[in-house]
């Protein structure tokens, strides 16, 4: 699509670092600014950057449309499933204390799972929105 050398090489150089930053924001959300929303949007930004620089088909190889569309409800299911897990382990809905033998560990685990769910839905939705707009223009 684009034949701009600087853009292509620059994008290739910067992509792993953006992805690494997304993972950092996701996993370090307990201790610093960040969390599922921000990481999800940054992951989506990686796919959008690939689509802008290397074309729509390259982006679809990285994030196939079917996978992206599955991710949209998947995150909500992970989130709701975490709540249901607390239900079955003897607590209330979305009560994290019962998820592990130690309540503090349970809270850590619960927050971790919930943030994963949020990140999956947000990244899936953002990429799906982008694909929907781009494919309309074809």
């Amino acid at each position: 699509m684009s034949s701009d050398l600087i853009l292509r090489v620059g994008t290739k150089l910067i992509l792993p670092f953006i992805l690494l930053f997304a993972i950092y924001v996701q996993l370090h959300g307990d201790y610093g600014p960040g969390g599922g929303f921000q990481a999800g949007v940054i992951v989506a930004a990686v796919v959008i950057l690939i689509a802008i620089t290397f074309g729509h088909n390259a982006a679809k190889r990285v994030a196939p449309r079917g996978l992206v569309e599955c991710m949209v409800p998947m995150g909500v299911l992970i989130f709701a499933g975490t709540g249901v897990a607390g239900f079955f382990l003897g607590g209330n809905y979305l009560d994290y204390s019962v998820l592990s033998h130690d309540p503090i560990h349970g809270h850590h685990l619960g927050i971790f799972l919930v943030e994963i769910g949020v990140a999956v839905t947000v990244s899936g939705t953002m990429v799906a929105l982008f694909y929907a707009f781009v494919e309309r223009g074809r």
């Binding site: 929303f37 947000v122 939705t125 953002m126 929105l129 929907a132 707009f133 309309r136």
Partner: peptide
């Protein structure tokens, strides 16, 4: 507000889709 921002982009996208 963190919640509001993400919902905001959702409504913006829906509005833009309607515009299209």
């Amino acid at each position: 507000i963190l919640t509001a921002i993400v919902v905001g982009v959702g409504t913006l996208a829906l509005g833009l889709a309607l515009v299209v």
